[in-house]
């Protein structure tokens, strides 16, 4: 029962256009074109965004998967840590690469014993060392178990990251470390387009207070991206959603 159907009237009949209409059309086309030009992009980015960020401030939304009690939401969760390196040169990036390379045994043995990780990898993007992983269950439990098994690797990496010195050694700063990691886990924009309106309401505690103009959705998104520079677009695709790493291993007969 789809809606949005549209209908025409007087189709085929050529309308008599005056020069006024002609001018209106031209102006209209000019505006459509204007929106695609570089100067407009410049104005939007440098003036309009700061202006609206000041006029209608938005809170930086929390990173990581959104809390849920439903089992499907609690397996195969995405962690996307983006951690700015202190040393923003090739040397800094090489140090990060080295820290990972030197700790391969530690990482693999640790992940085997944490038991809830599907995939985990380190990536360098520009001046950030990133850790992307897919894990089951609660975030704090995941990081805590991680600290227990490979805290030393975490320490070696986090030491190279801005602000990292305050939370290492991780085994001595477990609570602070978990909060710090959570803070670096990027915001996951919902798969449901209109959820960004709801997320912001929740963060601002103004649920139901006139945020209902759908046409404002682009601005809300822009302003969130202004305070949350790195985001995950959606919660990601899963080939076999709803199953834990251990369930997959058990099903394949490779032990868990």
């Amino acid at each position: 029962m789809a809606r949005n159907g549209t209908k025409t009237k007087a189709e085929g009949g050529t309308s008599q256009k005056g020069w006024f209409d002609w001018l209106g059309d031209k102006l209209d086309q000019w505006v459509d074109w204007l929106a695609t030009t570089k100067p407009f992009a410049f104005i939007a980015g440098r003036i309009l965004v700061p202006y609206w960020a000041w006029r209608t401030p938005v809170k930086r939304l929390e990173g990581g998967p959104r809390p849920s009690v439903q089992p499907g939401d609690n397996v195969q969760r995405m962690m996307n840590l983006v951690m700015p390196l202190k040393d923003k040169s090739a040397v800094g990036r090489a140090l990060a690469a080295l820290a990972i390379a030197q700790n391969k045994d530690e990482i693999y043995a640790g992940l085997d014993n944490v038991g809830t990780v599907h995939f985990a990898r380190f990536v360098i993007v520009d001046d950030n060392i990133c850790m992307f992983s897919v894990y089951d269950g609660d975030f704090s439990n995941y990081i805590r178990d991680f600290i227990v098994t490979i805290g030393s690797v975490f320490d070696a990496v986090v030491e190279l990251v801005e602000g990292g010195e305050d939370v290492i050694p991780s085994a001595k700063h477990v609570e602070k470390f978990i909060d710090w990691v959570h803070d670096h886990d990027i915001y996951q924009v919902s798969d449901v387009a209109t959820d960004i309106l709801r997320d912001q309401e929740e963060a601002n505690g103004d649920a139901g207070a006139g945020n209902d103009d759908l046409r404002l959705l682009p601005r809300k998104l822009i302003l969130q991206l202004n305070v949350n520079r790195n985001v995950s677009l959606g919660s990601g695709y899963r080939a076999y959603p709803g199953y834990s790493a251990a369930q997959v291993r058990q099903q394949f007969g490779v032990g868990w």
Binding site: T6, D28, V31, W52, I222
Partner: peptide
């Protein structure tokens, strides 16, 4: 109108899409 569209752009809103030619009525 062109003016409203400029207003939308300045408000970081999406201007309403132009209707396809021949469409004079719509429920949008």
């Amino acid at each position: 109108s062109a003016l409203r569209k400029i207003g939308d752009l300045l408000s970081l809103m999406r201007p309403l899409p132009n209707p396809p030619p021949g469409q004079n009525q719509s429920g949008d």
